[in-house]
Design a binder for these strands. Structure first.
Length: 574
DNA sequence: GCCGTTTTCGGCCCGACTGTTTTCAGTCG
């Protein structure tokens, strides 16, 4: 079960989509979208709010507040159910295909009776789109490409959502009878960017396995039971995500956790080492191969110690040389969330953020940051309606706020610039010089060819006022591939000019991605791990940025926002 | 459907791009 705010957000967004599909008032649709976003990013749990308090959420008026209250009380909203009944759910699913929006999704349903992605693909192959209004010669290719993009993730879900489900499952099992230890393992523990299924382990005595499994199948998350045994049980969530639970004897905990964390290739390496040492490694323990005698394996540290290896952090277990590095005693000391002294890419409601400057700054202070940068969008992203005057007025507010926080939290006034097709950014040099920090990102012209993208990025990197390149490839997981660019040339330029590359922590971005971080650090590039938060709750997304950085083997020294402010300032103003 | 130092009606983020058209709708950020 999603958190109430997210459930309500999804519900309001669904209603907004339905309004669009059925040709309802576009402003009404936007009102629901705005409210959905506001609820999703609202710091308080909406299930604890009455109708009056709900109206305090920006963008939520009487009508929407009543619907939320109705939903929280009864689990459904009559008006939404009614609209829902007029459009098959698959029609809305069509909108998730890039280039297909509400209008053409409805055309497909009305004219061709297409109401699922599969039916659409079939219709394309049967050439039934030809002649359909709004669907020209390119439409078929674009649709098939879009579907392919969606399916490239193979039905996988984003790390952020999987981690939430994993943590909820663990929280729901720790109280089960006999549960001595409980943890999630698998790709969630390795913090891979997308997740196919969630693996959870419980250490419990054999006689309690039944009780643990029953507790598992009775979790609210479990919509359907796929397999029900004493060692392994699998359920599926309402959205179709499979969760596997394994119950192990407590003595096997370390071996089980190691085995089920993977990755498979990492396990093959460790088993090979075990073999060479006359040992056998399985999910049940480490054994003396000849006498089949179990050796202590209650913790992962013990398992690795039997192999003469130090404990290897899960984020490194991808068979990317971590076992060899461990054997040489050269594992990196990975950057951790506690190492971050600040966030260098965040937004407020001056542009598309949901929270005020004051709310964001206070939340940053609560996170224990030493410094915090406010980097709202620049004018060339036209929809943000930014002006130089607004930016300067915000700077005054930031400076005044900085006086209030003093040494407790240092505030930096920055901006997120737009890199245009030529590599130019929004303001002239003298205006840029007034910022403490400039992040520059690509927000348009994703389709330029490789040479043009590379030229444009390098030009921005060479701009002396640009300190950080935000979400460098601008990919969106499951939505959009990154821009086509010569990354080696980009990394070299960053190293040469002292421009940092962002590891953006938004679960949909994680950009640079782990493998690119690995490549970039070979060039001696510096990195910034940022949340790109548009709401108070999103400040916590740095967690995913840190995980991605770890998967790219980053150490604190390479990450500029682990540095003390004086050193960071020197980097920003060379 | 929301909102209000232009306030209870009449606005609502606005422009670019793509692919479809033959002057523009749909989609996206």
């Amino acid at each position: 079960m999603a958190r109430p705010n997210e459930e309500v957000e999804a519900l309001l967004q669904e209603y907004a989509d339905l309004i669009a599909i059925t040709g309802g008032d576009a402003f009404k649709q936007r009102a629901y979208e705005r409210a959905a976003r506001a609820v999703g990013g609202y710091p308080q749990d909406v299930s604890g709010l009455d109708a009056k308090a709900l109206k305090g959420i920006p963008g939520v008026g009487k009508s929407i507040a009543d619907k939320i209250a109705e939903y929280l009380e009864t689990g459904h909203v009559a008006a939404i159910e009614e609209t829902r009944s007029t459009v098959p759910p698959g029609v809305r699913e069509l909108m998730s295909i890039p280039t297909l929006g509400p209008k053409r999704a409805m055309t497909l349903y009305r004219e061709l009776k297409v109401s699922s992605v599969d039916e659409l693909v079939a219709a394309v192959h049967e050439d039934r789109l030809t002649g359909l209004k709004g669907f020209g010669p390119k439409a078929a290719d674009n649709i098939l490409h879009g579907v392919e993009l969606m399916r490239a993730s193979g039905g996988r879900i984003l790390l952020g959502e999987a981690l939430r489900i994993a943590e909820e499952t663990v929280a729901g099992l720790v109280a089960a009878t006999g549960c001595e230890r409980c943890a999630y393992a698998g790709s969630v523990r390795r913090m891979k960017e997308t997740i196919g299924d969630v693996d959870v382990l419980v250490a419990a005595p054999d006689e309690d396995a039944e009780a643990v499994m029953t507790a598992f199948t009775e979790l609210p998350t479990a919509a359907e039971v796929v397999v029900h045994g004493l060692k392994k049980t699998s359920v599926r969530t309402a959205k179709g995500l499979q969760i596997d639970l394994r119950v192990l004897p407590p003595d096997s905990w370390g071996a089980g956790l190691q085995y089920f964390t993977g990755a498979q290739q990492h396990n093959i390496r460790t088993r090979e080492i075990a073999q060479r040492k006359g040992l056998k490694l399985s999910e049940y323990g480490v054994f003396d191969a000849e006498r089949d005698k179990p050796l202590p394996a209650r913790t992962e540290e013990e398992v690795y110690a039997h192999l003469d290896l130090p404990w290897i952090p899960p984020t490194l277990r991808e068979d990317r040389g971590e076992v060899a590095a461990a054997q040489r005693g050269e594992l990196p000391t990975l950057v951790g969330e506690d190492d971050l002294r600040g966030d260098l890419h965040t937004h407020t409601d001056l542009t598309d953020g949901l929270a005020s400057l004051e709310e964001m700054v206070e939340a940053a202070a609560r996170r224990g940051y030493a410094y915090y940068a406010v980097t709202d969008h620049a004018p060339e992203l036209k929809m943000q309606r930014m002006t130089s005057e607004k930016m300067l007025a915000q700077r005054d507010r930031v400076r005044a706020l900085a006086d209030r926080y003093g040494r407790r939290l240092r505030l930096l006034h920055g901006t997120e610039l737009n890199i245009d097709p030529e590599g130019e950014v929004d303001w002239p040099a003298d205006f840029l010089a007034g910022f403490d920090l400039c992040v520059a990102s690509v927000h348009s012209h994703f389709g330029l060819d490789r040479a043009a993208q590379t030229r444009r990025l390098i030009r921005a990197i060479e701009n002396p006022h640009v300190n950080v390149i935000g979400h460098p490839t601008t990919r969106k997981l499951g939505r959009r591939a990154g821009i086509d660019v010569d990354l080696d040339a980009v990394f070299a330029a960053c190293a040469r000019t002292g421009t940092a590359l962002e590891v953006n922590g938004h679960p949909e971005r994680l950009d640079l991605r782990d493998e690119h971080v690995l490549l970039a650090r070979r060039h001696g590039v510096r990195f910034a791990i940022d949340s790109d938060a548009h709401a108070v709750s999103e400040l916590a997304n740095v967690r995913f940025g840190v995980a991605t950085a770890q998967r790219g083997w980053l150490t604190p020294a390479e990450v500029i926002n682990t540095w003390p402010l004086t050193r960071l300032r020197r980097f920003l103003r060379p």
